[in-house]
Each structure stands twice: as structure tokens, then as C-alpha cells.
Design a protein around this nucleic acid. Sequence first.
DNA 1: GTCTATATAATGATAGAC
DNA 2: GTCTATCATTATATAGAC
Lengths: 187, 187
Amino acid sequence: MPAPRISREELIDRIAEVFKQHGYEGASLSLISKTTGLGRASLYHHFPGGKEEMGHEVFRQIGEHLDRNVLSHLRAKGLPEQRLKNWTQGLNRFYEGGSKNCLLGAMILSGGSGRFSDEITSTFRTLIDLLSTVLEAANIPQGLAQRRAGRAIGEIQGALLVSRGLKDEGYFQQILEDLPGELLSVK
Amino acid sequence: MPAPRISREELIDRIAEVFKQHGYEGASLSLISKTTGLGRASLYHHFPGGKEEMGHEVFRQIGEHLDRNVLSHLRAKGLPEQRLKNWTQGLNRFYEGGSKNCLLGAMILSGGSGRFSDEITSTFRTLIDLLSTVLEAANIPQGLAQRRAGRAIGEIQGALLVSRGLKDEGYFQQILEDLPGELLSVK
DNA sequence: GTCTATATAATGATAGAC
DNA sequence: GTCTATCATTATATAGAC
């Protein structure tokens, strides 16, 4: 009886890569099988619900990863400016300098939008609300803070997309660098 | 001998809708067949190269549409501020208030990224360069104009994506409204 | 220019052996 | 927990009649 080749966490991480790169429809079981080294049947052993269950598990694990390694910086104690800088550095690592797609975008624009509607909406809401809280801690009025936060989340998504379109990761890096200053601007 | 049910332009427009909504992989011939009212074989009569040729034709026609109805405002005579306002209004119509996906994003995040790499890259470059030219006409130094233009294109893409994720088209509208002022800001 | 019918490959998913 | 073998379905693509 062979032991599992890789941990469940590593397994889900590899499946996540396939979804991020090919979208939901483009992530075929053959591709997932090749990427994980597991046969189709083994995949169904781990995820009886098939591809859709894989998708939900990916959202869950990526969500935890995001929370622990990126959003934690927003929740930390300290000056808002420092928290924002740590956050953008976390984002840069999370997206590997802009070389990795965002799961949210990939799912929204590839047919997974309906299936994972709840995960997508609540993730965006969490991101915006959390970021807004930091801005409010820097004495930015709530309404403005919410608008700026929402805009920043969009900028990040757009930057990932355009840097991919232009094949220029520097584009993404530049946006990240400028973000903290603009979010706290007094203008 | 039956006459063509719809014009070639209308045909490509309908195929475009399928690509925008479902991405390249998700745009099955069955779906395209249903949307256009043409059988599979008829589709291959019009596009012998199959799905990939459809994709290229969609890029071409959407590109012409964008050029004629949106980018024309940037090329027009007049004050930069007015040109930018007309441009954002054109964008709002082009994306139908944020209810329509952008072909670029859909293709980038759904596996079509490799196949249509040239169209995608050159479209982004054109958008940024043209917008930058308008900013330079408003006496914004070239370097800053390029950066702001690039950022704005990303914001638009991100806004389309996030407004979809949040199911809130108002998000997209808000970004569009704010764009001209921010692009011309003296800060 | 459209259709029906079909070829062939790939899809998501299962059953059952080990 | 993994595998081989197989299922029904859907995919892209063609041939040929009208």
C-alpha cells in the first residue's frame, strides 16, 4: 500500500497552479493529473466531488495562505504606512513578482464565475474592508477610505492582468511600489 | 440556396460575446453554434481555421470597433480634458456600463493568452501610447504621462474584473468618472 | 451557404483490482 | 491510496447532400 506521494496541502497547491494558469474550463483533469503526478482515479479519491470540489478546496487553501501571509500585515499593530508597505511586499511574494495569475481573476474570466461566486465576492469584500480599516487608522474618513481601498484592489487585479498582457512584470512591481503613498495621500 | 441568416459582422459580434463571457477554452463550438444560430459545419464554412480563426477574427473586428468608437475620441481635436471625458463615455458604452467583459482579459485569463499574444500585447501598447499622447498634449511630461496612462489602462481592466466579482457595476462607473481628473491632476 | 451525419479525440467521472 | 480499464458525454473537425 503506497504512501501518498505528496501532502494534501502540496496537492491542492499544484491544482491551484493549474486553475490560476488555465482558468476553470481550461484546467482539464489530464492537465491536473500530469501536474500532480496522480492518476484520474486518485484525484477522485481525494476529491469525490470532482473538479468542482477541487476548485472549492483551492479557494479555501489559497484563502488561508493569503490571510496568513498577506492580510496579516494589514491586521498587525504598527503605523498604517508600515503596515501598508509590509502588505505590498507580501503581495509581491504572493504573486511572485507578478509572474503568477490571481485565482480570483482566473476564475471570474473563465466560466468559474458562477460556481465560485460566493468565494469570489466575499474575498473581494474582505480585502477592501480590511484595507479600508488601515486607511481609517490613518485618519482618512470612512467613505474616502472605502473608495480608495476598492480602487486599490482593482488596481492590483488590473496590474496583474496588464503586466501579463504586456509581458512586463515591472509594470506590476511599479504599481505595488506606488500604492502605499497614494493610499495615504492627503490630496 | 438559403441566404446568410445574419451578416458576417453580426456573426463575429455574436462569437465575440461567447469568447468574452466564457473565455477561449470555455467557448465551445456548441455554445457558439447556439448563440449564432449556425450549425457546426456552417461555422467551419465561414472560418475554415476553426475556433482559432474565429478568435483572430474577433480580435480584428473588436479592435476596429474599439478604434472607431472609443479611441477616436483620444485622437480627436480639442481640449485634452474634453477628449478624455469623451473617451471614458465611449468606454462606458463599449463595456455597456461594466456589464460586459473585456475580450483582452477574458483571453489572457483563459488559456488564449498564448494563441493571441500578438493581438493582446499590441492592443495594450496602442491604448497606453494613445492615452499618453493626450496627457502630453496637456503638458504632462512624457515619462509621467506614460506611467499614468499605463496605470489607467490597468485600472480599467481591474475595474471590469472587480465590478464583476462584487456584482456591482457602480464600481466600474465610479472609476471611469474619476479617471479624467486624475489623469490630468497636477499633483 | 446551410444542413445531416459522422469521424476522432478529449472530456469528466466510475468500478474494481491491488 | 494508487492503479488500469472503462463509461458516457462532449469536444473539435470533416464529408457530402441540397
